[in-house]
Design a protein around this nucleic acid. Structure first.
Lengths: 261, 261
DNA sequence: AAGTGGTCTAGACCACTTT
DNA sequence: AAGTGGTCTAGACCACTTC
């Protein structure tokens, strides 16, 4: 179904688009081919977020490879948080509808106490033509529509995060203020369930800025107060950018936490 | 040398300090025991940073386990950046003396252009009694001495990072301003070569603050300018904290870059 | 040609979960 | 008891580096 190496399983993939500076023709390990095939099935929705995937034995039979090869492919997918393995139960498609995932993209932690979920207040939702900067970062076509969202998040009643989002209009067609307000849970969960778009990873660029008049009002701080400004581009399968987000964080009682390893 | 499982290799480790909420007595996979033994050898300096380690076959013989088990142990060490594997050559102890490692702990990137190394200017080096906060974060004893360092880093002549460091006095005995000034290369390289202390990972807490008078002068910005403030605690083997660092970053032409995955 | 890490297979047994 | 992921072994061959 996949292979072709020599005697003991040799990949069929012809030399070509090598991933690097290899002098020899490019090779592709079998397990990486399997990994790509499984990723395709995840992307196409053959197995939906939260669902149980076929067992390793089943997948090995389906792809006509050994269980060990399937295992190595799934190991990498698990390391990338695309799937979750549970001993004795099986392998599940990762979803944003679990506690575990909620704080993977929210790095703002309280200086003291345990992290918990913010209260959301939607300020504005509208459909606009994408600004040039958004066109560039989301790889859109000039003139494409985007959904613009502005919201304020509070912890224990203290306004802390003022956020603006830009989402490709084509993907997020029916996204209205009502649906955002009535939806309980993390926004990425909504995107995943209602719009079939799962955020996989994101890139953030962080700066320090002074609060402008409007921002200061929303966050309840003096104008000019230093704030963290985090610009985020989020990607779905295949490194396709599908969200632009600018967050302004008040760091009076919170900090951005990061592990370097 | 290690094992004891049953017929096919069973771990000797007696039930006891299980790592988790397991109801049954705790087990420890063989490969994790091997991993711990290899880590010990790294920590003790049996193989020094940059050096070639014994091959998988040798280690398998030494520990009386299969090559596959050693491989899995080394795979995890490589994932944690403790060792580096090079096909055809062998496995090497990771070191801060390589380009590759330099930007693992320096997340401040230029808004445009490629990242490069800063110019260092040592402002102050002194030996002091550790302040209470430092005692707490570095897990010292009250009254212990620490080496205090203050330095300014510039990119293309533009002062950008004002940093303060606190290092355990016991470990960093002969650390003087002269040695810091004459040393070329990343500071973690100096720590590794001259003081036998290798930084493995670090935890950062980031806030936005306004530049005070002194800071503003060093960084050449108006007083009150918003700056990133990054408090870092670095750890060596065994999660022992061995460095406290506070960096103030001017984000006029740079940003703190972070990948969420 | 020899040595090293990298891939693949096949089979055994273990721990965990559900039936 | 049956099924799942997790560990361990043994052996084969491959790609890369050095001699």
């Amino acid at each position: 179904m996949v292979k072709s190496w020599s005697m003991n399983s040799v990949p069929t993939i012809p030399p070509g688009e090598g991933a690097g500076s290899s002098a020899s023709p490019s090779f592709r390990p079998l397990y990486q081919q399997i990994k790509a095939l499984i990723t395709q099935s995840l992307q196409s929705g053959e197995w939906k977020p939260g669902e149980l995937m076929p067992s390793e034995v089943e997948l090995a039979a389906r792809f006509k490879v050994s269980q060990g090869t399937v295992r190595k492919a799934i190991d990498e997918l698990a390391a990338e948080n695309l799937v979750v393995r549970r001993q004795g139960k099986g392998t599940f498609v990762a979803t944003h509808h679990e506690e575990r995932a909620h704080f993977r993209f929210l790095r703002l932690m309280p200086d003291e106490g345990v992290p918990h979920h913010p209260d959301n207040r939607i300020i504005e939702v509208k459909r606009i033509r994408a600004p040039a900067e958004v066109v560039r970062l989301l790889e859109l076509k000039s003139g494409d529509a985007v959904v613009y969202i502005k919201r304020l998040q509070s912890f224990d009643g203290a306004p802390t995060i003022l956020e603006e989002l830009w989402l490709p209009g084509q993907i997020f067609k029916g996204l209205t203020a009502e649906r955002l307000v009535e939806y309980k849970g993390p926004m990425y969960g909504l995107f995943e369930s209602e719009f079939g778009t799962r955020m996989i990873r994101a890139l953030e660029k962080i700066r320090a800025v002074g609060a402008d008049t409007v921002t200061a009002q929303y966050l309840g701080v003096p104008e000019g107060t230093p704030l963290l400004c985090a610009d985020r581009v989020s990607f779905t399968y295949g490194d396709r950018p599908v969200e632009l987000r600018r967050g302004l964080y008040s760091t009076a009682q919170h900090h951005y936490q990061n592990e370097l390893s």
